[in-house]
Design a protein around this nucleic acid. Structure first.
Lengths: 201, 201
DNA sequence: TTTTATACAAACACGAATGTATGTAAATAG
DNA sequence: CTATTTACATACATTCGTGTTTGTATAAAA
């Protein structure tokens, strides 16, 4: 029919990604047909197959779209003279992202509860590279905190990092699966504050 | 064909459940057909539909089969005079169950990574009743520990319980998705010991 | 300006999964 | 010992999703 300009084509590509996120969230990745996504995006399967190789390709495109802004915002300042405060700040920032970035929150919910890690997906089942990066950054931050005498002794920075890493994993999972009035959401900030306070000298 | 006795019928029922667990683990719940399960169990779909209403029914039967032994083993002794040690013991017991109860471990892996919580499954997406029980038992244990002066001050038992609850959630998830040589498995006991030590007065 | 590649829509062909219905031999009830 | 129910296997009908192919109006390239 009417051929679109490059800009319009890119717009429909984004429409498809957004529609996929909505439908994945509601129906699960496995039981979502490309027909449903196409309908939700106001196009036909032809458009979906034009922009994406198949459902898996579309899934990973949707994932990139939401994970990249996440990596930008969660950072540890290696120069600051309050490394422990930096850890707390980074964790609080994660919660803030979940609060105000709907696409990131929804994508995390899809990744955690609406997706089966099998076949092509099994590669990212456990720790992604990004997650291990986060663990490494936590370790570095605790090492700097230890060097500044901020940590309660005896303290092994690496072990503390694992403890925090596991805490954050659980927190994100339960935050996502909660309703806004449940304590995992209402008290998330306090949980973080207390978690870090347990380490303070 | 040959009609089986009641005992034989119950045996094939268990065969089907075990086959379902294997196939769910390999293929994911959503993309597992009842034909695959039947073949893996050495029966036909007729047998599956005889014993279970449909795939969802079979899934929940498999879940019960593995979760019940779990609840029996993870307990907090309310009478002991070392509540904090009881917490550590209970957490270590969880890891021991994952190590030596293959069916429980595999079922947890299915629940965490091979299942989409949508439709009939969405009810158990977040915290099951059993999980909230566990949180309550943790809180009670920390309260008793506080009463005995075992906790480092200032300490809010309930907040400590949430911190531990989130830690355990992350630990189970990462333990399950790890290979036996990865640190989440090799060092799980140390993580627990250190986690509890952080609270000790 | 002509040509070509683009951005889809529409139609087609195929397999796969589901639920049900039917058949049946043997266990069990009476 | 007969009648009935059980514990499946087998066959059937139908729906649904996928990947591909074809058609086409138009934007962009030459």
């Amino acid at each position: 029919m009417v051929r679109k300009t490059k800009e319009e084509a890119e717009a429909t590509r984004l429409q498809i990604i957004e529609a996929a996120r909505r439908v994945f969230l509601e129906c699960g990745v496995g039981s979502t047909s490309l027909e449903k996504i196409a309908a939700a995006a106001g196009v036909t399967r032809g458009a979906v197959y034009w922009h994406f190789k198949n459902k898996t390709d579309l899934f990973f495109a949707m994932r990139e779209d939401a994970v990249l802004p996440f990596l930008d915002r969660v950072v540890f300042d290696a120069e600051a003279n309050d490394p422990l405060g930096g850890v707390e700040h980074a964790l609080q920032e994660i919660i803030r992202i979940l609060v105000d970035q709907a696409q990131t929150r929804e994508t995390f919910e899809i990744l955690a509860f609406k997706c089966e890690y099998v076949g092509e997906f099994s590669s990212m089942k456990g720790c992604t590279a990004g997650q291990m990066d986060f663990l490494g950054m936590l370790t570095d931050a605790y090492r700097r905190a230890a060097a500044k005498g901020q940590l309660r002794l005896p303290a092994d920075p690496e072990m503390l990092a694992y403890d925090t890493f596991l805490f954050v994993g659980g927190l994100i999972k339960h935050w996502i699966s909660s309703t806004p009035d449940e304590r995992f959401r209402t008290d998330a900030e306090r949980f973080i504050t207390q978690h870090v306070a347990l380490r303070r000298a």
